[in-house]
């Protein structure tokens, strides 16, 4: 069964003048079709303003469809009675770690979500320990979050979502404000949760290297899904990606350039090893 299913999903923002009259309509999502199966690792790529964050906000019912439908874990997001259930099914981690950590001790921050849901105290502590261990942050459980690095803070934020035991976790550009080490930490944790706990992960990003390990990739531009496929398939379409303000990993680009210079190299090379093998140096 699909845990997330969008059919012809549309979102319109109204621009208003000073008196509140509608000046214009901006279509942020334009008939988006998207399917995510439980247990998949999905990436959504797109440039600044392509509509990918608007889509993320739909998946946990922060926004609701202007047209079309979106089902999350079998529940219609347009029905406001489903709001809480949807947010428990689909947890969200945002870009800026400093905007989503609220407590003064790491474990209290992680416990905030389940406490809000009315989980019994003993079980809250069990969940806090379990989720902090799953992101490798248990040894900081009694620390103050403001002494942590950006990558560590994002892992605490992920643990906070994990503690609510959602079926699906949406990471909305979780690494945009981190340094290269922090980025690696967060992406590694996301893959581990997917592999070891079977968590469905939706990663929204514009760093190409981060989508290499995904099961399936959607590329968005002007509110539409303009490309979709497995990473290798997506990255073999270098010129098309560039036309959507995207890029490919450096090795893929090098392979593409070599091909253009006349070498016999297949499309969609992702790693150095693959490139060396197809170079046929003997």
């Amino acid at each position: 069964m699909n845990i997330i299913e969008a059919k012809q999903l549309v979102h319109e923002f109204f621009r208003r003048d000073e008196e509140g009259n509608i000046e214009g309509i901006q279509v942020a999502l334009n008939k988006v079709d998207l399917k995510v199966e439980a247990g998949q690792f999905i990436s959504i790529l797109g440039h600044n303003g392509s509509g990918k964050s608007t889509l993320a906000k739909h998946i946990n019912a922060l926004l609701t469809p202007s047209d079309g439908t979106l089902y999350v874990d079998g529940k219609d997001t347009a029905d406001s009675n489903n709001e809480l259930a949807i947010r428990q099914s689909a947890g969200m981690v945002f870009q800026n770690p400093d905007n989503q950590i609220i407590a003064s001790i790491v474990e209290e921050d992680v416990g905030f979500g389940p406490e809000n849901m009315g989980v019994p105290t003993d079980e809250i502590w069990e969940r806090v320990e379990r989720s902090l261990k799953s992101v490798g942050m248990w040894k900081y459980h009694a620390h103050s979050p403001n002494k942590l690095s950006g990558g560590q803070k994002q892992r605490v934020a992920i643990a906070g979502v994990m503690a609510m035991e959602p079926k699906c976790i949406i990471l909305d550009e979780p690494t945009a404000m981190l340094d290269p080490d922090g980025r690696k930490e967060v992406i590694k944790v996301a893959h581990e949760l997917n592999r070891k706990k079977g968590m469905t992960v939706i990663l929204i990003t514009h760093y190409m290297e981060e989508v290499v390990g995904s099961d399936y990739v959607y590329v968005m531009d002007k509110g539409k899904v303009v490309m979709e496929g497995e990473p290798r398939d997506i990255f073999s379409r270098v010129d098309e990606l560039k036309s959507h303000r995207m890029d490919v990993p450096q090795i893929t680009l090098l392979a593409h350039e070599l091909k253009k210079s006349g070498l016999d190299i297949p499309d969609g090379i992702l790693t150095r090893e693959e490139l060396i093998n197809v170079l046929n140096l003997g």
Binding site: P249, Q250, I251, L254, R272, L275, I276, L281
Partner: peptide
Amino acid sequence: PEVTYLMMELKNRGWNVDVSATTVE
């Protein structure tokens, strides 16, 4: 840079490349 890593690997395998290449070009 990734390109430099690639050059280093080629060199390790005995190929005569300039390991100071840093850009795709």
